[in-house]
Design a binder for these strands. Structure first.
Length: 525
DNA sequence: CGTGTTTGACCAGCGC
DNA sequence: GCGCTGGTCAAACACG
């Protein structure tokens, strides 16, 4: 059953930049970043918060370095303005009036300061240019790689499928029911565009907003039902990534006219799983969760807890928390859905990370008519590495990205089960790489706490991936790359908080609201 | 008393 | 059609 897992395709993601410029880009988030949690940003946060948006937009549009320094100069201009009368200082070298002399001294000081700032400004400009050129280089490489993959994948759609049994249905179509050994490809293809999640939220909030309302009507079942079908193995994906997958993909018959609907439903189902070592019942993610269920999952002695976000009424985000069967110190938290409300800074990092990952998954899949290709694209874009910290689950009925934070210290835990493609945040890779993978989502993300999905209907957002061809995804990814510093920052923060959180959660009470504490205290078992 | 958790029951999809 | 499983509901319960 278990098809031999394909060689891990890995996303080299390096949180420790190897670029010439060690400094990371300024943090993105609208709200002032909690410096305490973001050591990464502090270093290079030269720009005021509102400048960041400019940085972002600049990066979206071919990142013109010249625009950035502009902001820096603003300050200088102010100084310059002040020293407009400097000439007078030069004019007469001596002033009989002590007061005047003092003023001149001050001016001299200011001028010196001005020069210093100017030079720094130049230095920053240089840095920016260098970063920009690096970015462009990477983007070119990325595009080249993509094109290469594209050609390859088109010719070899199901190459990932070891047993080839499913080869027949090489597209999304047909693969649905028979997916036992089919891998990633299929999964991706059925995914909808992340950016559209709006639909989900709308539907979910209406149907699930209040528990009482949960409709059992067919209409709703469509949505819910689609999520329901998880093969037993899937539990492994959620909980203990164990293995094998006989994945049964929920009915994604793309061949029918319902394709779109199902796609939407699937979109919602994109999941991001975070594995982290923690003795606490839950990892700190800054959100408020309410536990609505707990079950024993097959293949794992540890119960799986179900939580839904309670930070806003009708927020469709849910998460499952379960300890890894093989190593109970590992806590596996799987997120699903996108928040429909602003998030507190504390929640931003994780939310951004997960939603970005999910949306990247979705957008990647959607952007191409041939999901298989996309899957391969995603999988293969990852360069082979040794350690896997993130995986794209091919086995799960729903596309799942797994961020494995347990391997930071020592990579020993489960290699992604069959069907998982490891996405290592290899230290050797440039930081841009990760964003390339997950960046697409970022594009919209900045608009709302990083999680808010765009209301497509109301706001015609730039990248409507759903309809975009593959190339659009690429360009979107490119754009994302430009803005990726945010993503990196968010990711780094998330990881930092996670890693740190695993050690401190007990004291922190998860850093969440009391709800979390309560939840944690009771949720397990 | 309000809020959140627990837990048994229910539902739906899939395999046999 | 039955059984299994994942996911969710909702009444009962616990807690502050």
């Amino acid at each position: 059953m278990d098809s031999p897992s394909p060689p891990p395709l890995q996303f080299p993601v390096n949180l420790n930049s190897t670029l010439p410029h060690p400094r990371n880009s300024p943090p993105p988030p609208p709200p002032p970043p909690p410096a305490a949690h973001r050591p990464f940003f502090d270093e290079m946060n030269f720009f005021p918060s509102d400048d960041k948006s400019r940085v972002l937009s600049a990066s979206h549009s071919n990142l013109t370095p010249t625009k950035l320094p502009f902001n820096v100069n603003t300050g200088l201009n102010l100084l310059t303005t002040n020293s407009c009368s400097d000439q007078s200082m030069v004019d007469d070298g001596v002033s009989p009036n002590p007061e005047e002399k003092r003023v001149k001294n001050e001016r001299a000081v200011l001028q010196a300061e001005l020069e210093r700032i100017n030079s720094e400004n130049l230095r920053l400009k240089d840095m920016l240019n260098q970063v920009t050129s690096n970015y462009q280089t990477l983007q070119m490489q990325f595009n080249t790689l993509i094109q290469t993959q594209k050609t390859e994948d088109v010719g070899d759609p199901i190459e990932e499928n070891p047993d080839g049994s499913g080869g027949g249905g090489n597209n999304n179509n047909n693969n649905n029911t028979n997916i036992s050994n089919k891998l990633v490809p299929r999964q991706f293809m059925d995914l909808g565009l992340a950016t559209n999640t709006e639909n989900d939220e709308a539907s979910m909030s209406s149907s699930e907003g209040r528990s009482g309302e949960r409709s059992r009507s067919p209409g709703n079942t469509g949505e819910v039902a689609s999520s329901k079908r998880q093969s037993p193995d899937q539990s492994s994906n959620w909980g203990s990534n164990n293995n094998n997958n006989n994945n049964k993909v929920p009915k994604f018959s793309s061949s029918s006219g319902k394709e779109v609907d199902q796609t939407e439903a699937t979109m919602r189902k994109a999941r991001v799983s975070v594995r982290a070592r923690s003795e606490a019942p839950m990892i700190t993610d800054g959100c408020q969760w309410r536990k609505y269920g707990q079950k024993m999952a097959k293949g794992n002695p540890c119960p799986r807890a179900y939580y839904r976000c309670t930070m806003a009424l009708g927020c469709p985000v849910r998460k499952q928390v379960q300890r890894c069967a093989e190593d109970k110190t590992i806590l596996i938290t799987t997120y699903e859905g996108n928040h429909n409300h602003p998030l507190p800074p504390a929640a931003m990092a994780m939310a951004s990370t997960t939603s970005s990952a999910a949306r990247m998954l979705l957008s990647g899949s959607m952007s191409s008519a041939d999901g298989l290709m996309n899957s391969n694209f995603l999988a293969r874009t990852l360069l082979p590495c040794s350690s896997s910290m993130a995986t794209i689950s091919a086995s799960a009925p729903f596309p799942t990205v797994t961020l494995d934070l347990t391997q930071t210290p020592n990579p020993l835990f489960q290699r992604p089960a069959t069907g998982h493609f490891p996405i290592p945040f290899a230290a050797a890779a440039p930081p841009q790489t990760f964003p390339q993978i997950f960046g697409h989502a970022l594009y919209n993300q900045s608009k709302f706490s990083g999680l808010q999905m765009s209301k497509d209907m109301e706001a015609p957002q730039p990248p409507p991936p759903p309809q975009n061809p593959f190339t659009d995804t690429l360009s979107a990814a490119g754009a994302a790359i430009a803005s990726d510093p945010n993503f990196i920052a968010a990711l780094a923060t998330a990881m930092t908080s996670l890693i740190g959180g695993s050690h401190h959660q007990k004291e922190n009470g998860n850093g969440n609201s009391n709800v979390d504490n309560k939840t944690s205290s009771n949720s397990q078992q």
